[in-house]
Design a protein around this nucleic acid. Structure first.
Lengths: 221, 221
DNA sequence: TGATTCCATTGATTTCGATCAACGGCGGAA
DNA sequence: TTCCGCCGTTGATCGAAATCAATGGAATCA
């Protein structure tokens, strides 16, 4: 695990983490180059992370290399908080990513000393669980087209309905998130393009304009 | 939602719920006949449940009836605790089931007033999340045989390695838990029987003797 | 105590998504 | 620049699991 340190200053948190941890918790900022590991499955869970810019994927591997991505973390999102002392999955930067890092210990201390902090941690874990429940339904019971449509709507919503949806992740990442292969994901994109549900913007195939959100929602159900 | 009330007494909790909620919380016991609903998706989350005997399935449905079972709850397990005010999924009794019911409100009150309670609730939610993460890997990336082997090992472990594994749920339930069809589940059972990983005990096909737990574990990976 | 419905298995066939393969385009490295 | 490796798409083929179908029990209930 190689990190490049941008800044490591002792200063109060702000934003989401501050609400969680309170003023007396200090933190630092780190940056990860695209494709680098933030932490690995089984490692000590020493820190909690909040994304400032970029994107992170968290995933599990089978021994033969099959990969399942649990979730993508976008700016503002927190990840890496565990109840035990070790990480139950790995995390990697999808693109160049800046994060704010807090010591797990100081976070958990405020959790027991402050009611507000406790319920904030709980609501973070609960939201993550809710996402996992929806994702199990997707992985267990939805068709390829339904999965890709759901993925697009999820990203669209999390990026607050931008005109152009700029996906930070590759088709491989999307496939491993949706339990499909890259070819199937690619074909689903092409189908949705042909049905004029979406349009590619620019040269790269990662800039997408959603033309018919209601149509996409009908694939989901 | 039709309930049959066995007993509704004001008395202190004991066991897991007591650790969670403290002595001043009161509760009652209910019984559900096999196949009956405990609560439905979208309903008010008024109570938290702990299983005394029997088994409960929690699941989500798609509009066309496709079903994904999140998890099976066995004696000792708690379920139905939500962070918001409504249930995010439905719950049904798999067999005749007795539960102990606690008002959500009193549980959440103790959560903020007692540090110990707060971290107990958190660890419950965290364990549920951990199960969901493992299940996403299963649903997204494992083969039918791997899923069924993992299912058997999970049930074996949760029932503390009994000599005869008595499954309370039907093949349909297992299929909807594993993201498969009943036929595929049945064929997987037959394959494992032919490979002498397991043996059926008695007439019903729900009493299973695991002959080779290590062999089963190799299917998982 | 039938009758009816559910349950589980097994066989035949189909199908959706995986796999194998080829190609063109982009981007980073020397 | 030129190379090489990734990235994404598309086509051809394969295969694992779904679907369709039939059967024999077990459980439930009128």
């Amino acid at each position: 695990m190689l990190l490049r340190i941008n800044r490591a200053s002792r200063r109060p948190l702000d934003g989401h983490l501050a609400a969680l941890a309170g003023e007396q918790v200090f933190c630092s900022e780190f940056s990860y180059r695209r494709g680098t590991e933030v932490f690995g499955e089984g490692e000590e869970a020493e820190y909690v992370y909040q994304i400032l810019s970029g994107a992170v994927r968290t995933y599990k591997l089978l021994s033969d290399g099959r990969r399942q991505i649990n979730s993508f973390h976008l700016p503002g999102d927190m990840f890496g908080l565990e109840n035990g002392t070790t990480h139950r999955f790995s995390a990697e930067a999808v693109v160049e990513t800046r994060v704010r890092i807090t010591k797990r210990r100081s976070l958990l201390e405020t959790m027991t000393s402050r009611d507000e902090g406790a319920s904030s941690v709980l609501s973070l874990v609960t939201r993550t669980l809710q996402h996992a429940e929806n994702h199990m339904l997707l992985l267990g019971r939805k068709t390829a087209l339904e999965r890709v449509a759901a993925f697009l709507l999820e990203m669209d919503e999390r990026l607050v309905h931008p005109n152009v949806l700029t996906l930070p992740m590759s088709r491989r990442d999307i496939a491993d998130y949706l339990g499909l292969t890259i070819e199937t994901v690619s074909r689903a994109f092409s189908t949705l393009r042909d049905e004029e549900m979406l349009r590619f913007d620019g040269q790269t195939q990662r800039e997408i304009i959603l033309l018919d959100r209601e149509g996409l929602a009908e694939y989901d159900a």
